[in-house]
């Protein structure tokens, strides 16, 4: 089994799905010979040629709109948007068309589209290149939102996303792209959209997170006192998220800390916190804590680490929840 980083795992999934189904095509800004801004599509153009790996103009509304038309007419396009901030110009197409065509056509005309988007901060880039807008799209019915963190999960989830009959936004935490490797099977496998993962089991407190913050949470767990047993959940899918797994865990532990990089107000942490109190109220020993980005714009790199979630802040929230 090969040891791959996130970029390589995603590349492998794309390559295998393209090989398997000639309806799968890749398009985006410089995704061709250049291999994309983060080199995720490297080698695909050489293997599959101009017909199936398509360099586009810098025109996100046009890219996504065209991809929607392709998907409506039976292709399985996988457009890449270079940075999550560039989803802005395509927002209309995603939310007003991709997400709604199934409903408008009583299920006859669907949009099997997977939009790949690098997401989040931590690479010394400014705002628009470091944002975490997952909750915006989770709030839009008709589209699914996925954010795998590890190479293994990314491969399995991307294959699921490409084969999914509905549109999926596939967020790739760019901070993790080359910072972590693990064994990834060569053979194809899928991970169902909507299933979270227990990274480590515990009895005293549940930490729920996703994206690059997973690694800060692991660090916080490592720093926690030995007599505290913490359950760590990687959500993997943002919408529909695995509330059953969270509820089951919190009913066991009685305490919950939600950690995400995105700003706090109306972030997914608010939704999870609300659902936990709805479903686990009598099991709770402490208020649900949130550790998130601040309600400011993502700062430029000098202040980047002040904004991003770190193990210390996660550790404090864990301490407070335990001491309540």
């Amino acid at each position: 089994m090969a040891t791959l980083n996130l970029v390589q795992a995603i590349n492998l999934a794309l390559q295998q799905e393209m090989q398997k189904d000639d309806r799968v095509i890749v398009l985006g800004e410089d995704v061709g010979p250049n291999g994309g801004v983060f080199r995720v599509t490297e080698g695909l153009h050489a293997q599959f040629g101009d017909d199936r790996v398509i360099d586009t103009p810098l025109a996100e509304s046009g890219i996504i709109g065209t991809a929607i038309g392709m998907a409506m007419n039976d292709l399985r396009p996988v457009p890449e948007i270079q940075f999550e901030g560039f989803l802005g110009p395509a927002y209309d197409q995603i939310v007003n068309h991709a997400a709604r065509s199934r409903s408008r056509s009583r299920g006859a005309i669907t949009v099997p589209l997977t939009i790949r988007v690098p997401v989040g901060g931590g690479i010394h880039a400014p705002e628009l290149h470091s944002d975490s807008p997952e909750a915006i799209y989770a709030h839009s019915p008709g589209i699914k939102v996925v954010m795998p963190t590890t190479p293994y999960d990314a491969k399995g989830l991307l294959i699921s996303a490409i084969r999914d009959p509905d549109p999926v936004i596939f967020f790739e935490p760019k901070r993790v792209y080359r910072s972590f490797r693990e064994e990834v099977p060569e053979d194809e496998y899928t991970i169902p959209i909507g299933e979270a993962k227990i990274v480590s089991e515990g009895d005293d407190l549940t930490v729920v997170t996703w994206g690059a913050s997973l690694f800060q949470c692991i660090e916080a767990l490592d720093n926690a006192p030995d007599d505290v047993s913490i359950e760590l959940i990687d959500l993997r899918t943002i919408d529909p998220f695995d509330m059953d797994m969270i509820a089951e865990s919190v009913e066991k532990t009685g305490r919950c800390v939600v950690v995400h990089e995105a700003a706090m107000t109306c972030g997914l942490g608010a939704e999870i916190s609300s659902r936990v109190q709805e479903r686990c109220f009598l099991h709770l020993e402490a208020p649900v804590q949130r550790v998130t980005g601040f309600d400011t714009l993502m700062p430029y790199y000098k202040l980047e680490n002040e904004y991003l979630v770190n193990a210390k802040r996660v550790g404090q929230a864990i301490e407070e929840a335990l001491a309540y």
Partner: peptide, 27 residues
Amino acid sequence: FGGHGIVGAQTPLGAGLAFAARYEWEV
């Protein structure tokens, strides 16, 4: 493939529909 309520937003969809049609025939 539908009427569309956002002014002009159906125009890239038209390109995509035609792209898929050409792709099916050519590729």
